[in-house]
Nucleic acid binder design. Structure first.
Lengths: 259, 259
DNA sequence: ATAAAGGCTGACGTGACGTCAGGGTCAAGC
DNA sequence: GCTTGACCCTGACGTCACGTCAGCCTTTAT
C-alpha cells in the first residue's frame, strides 16, 4: 500500500509540509513517480513516521530524532532518561512560575486585613522563606551563594514592584467596581474590572456580590444585586481562559457574550 | 546613575544583544551620547527591565509584554490569570510526557529480557497491514489516554522495522548490490538499491564495500572492490537530494554523472 | 475542453535573540 | 603622538520546525 503525501499527512494528523520536511531531512524515504515527481510512501514509512512523531512528542529536536532512529536500545533508553530529567526540570520551572503568579494574585486576598507594612513584610518573608525552603539548598549547591543572594534580591525587588502596582489597585479598584455595579456599564474597562474582582472572596457590598473563586478556576460567576431591594439584577460568567465575559439572558435562558 | 549597555546587561544577567533588542522594540528607552551613539540607561530603565524580565519569565511573548507595560492594573491581572491556566496546561502536558517516557522505558527494559526469538515472534505474528488496520485510525487522534498501548505498539513496530530491514538486506538488497557491483550496471533500480544500502553500517562482502553514511547525509560515497584482488575498481557518489549517481573518472579525476 | 483539485519546488516568515563582520571610540601605556 | 586593547555601534545572517504563499505542472471530474 502506497500513500501520497496528503494521504500520509492525513493519516498521521500532520501537515503535508511536515511530511515533505521529514523526507527532505532524510527521516522519511519516499519513492518518486518518475513522470510527475509525486512522492509515494510505503507502509514502512507509516511506522517510521509514527516513531518520529513519538520522539517529537517527547520534545526531542529533529537532530536527536535522527539519531534515535538509528540508535541501539541502550542508547535509546539512555536518551529517554536524559529527556526525562530535562522535562522534570521544566516542570519544576513551571511550578515556580505558577507559584509566582499565585503569590502575585493571592496577594490581594489577604490584603485588607493587614496594614500596608504588615502586608509587605509578610509577602516578603513568606516568599523568601518558601523559595529558600523549596529550592534554596539545591540552588545553593549548584550555583553557589552569590547567585542565590542575587536571585533573592531580585525577588524582593520584584515583589516590591508588584506591591506598588497593587497599591494602585487598592486605591481605586473597589470604587470602580461600585460604579460598574451601579451603572451596569460592563464594557471593556468595566468587564476587566469585574474579571479582577472575580478573584476575590465572597464579599458583601450594598449593591453587588460575587461568588468565591480561586485563581485557577477557569469560569467565574458574578451576580449583581439591586442596591435597595437586594434582588438579583444580572448574572455574569467570566471565562478567564478565553477572556470571555457572558451575561445571562432571561429571555433565552442562555449566556450571551458581552461586547 | 546611568548605565551603559554592558553594565545594564550584567546587572540584569542578560546579554547585551537582549538589551539592544528590547530598546529597538521600544521596551526600554535609552538616551544617546550625540558624539558616539552610546546608549545610557537611567535607573527607571532598570526597573522597567526587571518588569520585562518578570513577564518573560512567566512565558509571555514580547508582544504581550509590550501590552503589559502599557496596560492598566486590571488588564495585567487578567492576563496573569490567563497565563496561569496556560502554564497549568503546559504542566499537564509535561506530566503526560513524563508518564509516556516512564512507560516506554519500563516496556523497553522488560523487552530486553526477551530473547530475539520472542521479539521476532511478537512482530512476526502481526503483519503490517494488520497493524495499519488496527492502528491506522488511532494515528489520526492526538495522543490521548491510550498512550501506553500506542507506545508499546510503536516499540514492537520499531523492532519490526529493524528486522524487516535486516531481512531485506539478506534476501534481496545485498544480492542486488552484489549484482550491481559485478555487472557495473548502475541504472535506476541499482542506484536505488545502493542508496538504500548506503543507510546501513559498514559491511564487508567479497566484492563490494561502501562507506558509512547517515540517512541525512546528502551525498554518499560508494567504493566497489574487485572480488578477488580486493583492489578498488570504482568509486561512486550518490546525491540523494537530487537523485544523481556519479562515477569517478580516473582520466579526468572528476565525478561524471551515470546514465 | 475546461475547471477544480492536487502535486511539486523554491522562498520567505516566525520569535527572541546568538553570533559574526566591519568599523568607530576611548583610556592607558609607550 | 601612537599603538593596543577594551568597548561601543550597526547591519545582517543563523537558529528551529515547520506555516504560508506563489508559480507552475498534472491528474481527475464534469
Amino acid at each position: 500500500m502506497n500513500y501520497r503525501t496528503s494521504e500520509l499527512a492525513k493519516l498521521a494528523g500532520v501537515s503535508q509540509r511536515t511530511i515533505r520536511f521529514y523526507e527532505n531531512e532524510g527521516l522519511l524515504v519516499a519513492q518518486r513517480d518518475p513522470q510527475n515527481q509525486y512522492r509515494y510512501f510505503g507502509t514502512d514509512q507509516v511506522d517510521r513516521l509514527q516513531q518520529i512523531l513519538f520522539y517529537r512528542q517527547l520534545g526531542l529536536p529533529i537532530s536527536q530524532v535522527k539519531k534515535m532512529m538509528l540508535a541501539s536500545d541502550y542508547e535509546i533508553v539512555a536518551t529517554l532518561q536524559q529527556q526525562r530529567s530535562a522535562l522534570e526540570q521544566q516542570r519544576a520551572q513551571l511550578d515556580q512560575m505558577l507559584q509566582l503568579i499565585d503569590d502575585t494574585i493571592r496577594y490581594q486576598k489577604g490584603d485588607l486585613e493587614m496594614t500596608d507594612e504588615e502586608k509587605f513584610q509578610a509577602f516578603k518573608e513568606a516568599s523568601l522563606q518558601e523559595n529558600e525552603e523549596k529550592y534554596g539548598e539545591e540552588i545553593r549547591e549548584q550555583y553557589g551563594e552569590e547567585v542565590v543572594e542575587k536571585a533573592n534580591h531580585q525577588w524582593i525587588s520584584q515583589a516590591s514592584n508588584n506591591f506598588k502596582r497593587f497599591q494602585a489597585i487598592e486605591n481605586d479598584l473597589f470604587k470602580q467596581l461600585a460604579i460598574v455595579a451601579q451603572t451596569h456599564d460592563l464594557e471593556s474597562d468595566a468587564a476587566t474590572a469585574v474579571s479582577v474582582m472575580a478573584n476575590k472572596e465572597d464579599r458583601d457590598a450594598d449593591d453587588y456580590t460575587y461568588v468565591e473563586s480561586e485563581p485557577w478556576d477557569n469560569v467565574t460567576e458574578i451576580k449583581l444585586y439591586d442596591e435597595d431591594s437586594d434582588k438579583l439584577v444580572d448574572t455574569y460568567r467570566y471565562d478567564k481562559k478565553n477572556d470571555i465575559l457572558a451575561k445571562y439572558d432571561d429571555a433565552t435562558s442562555k449566556f450571551v457574550e458581552v461586547k
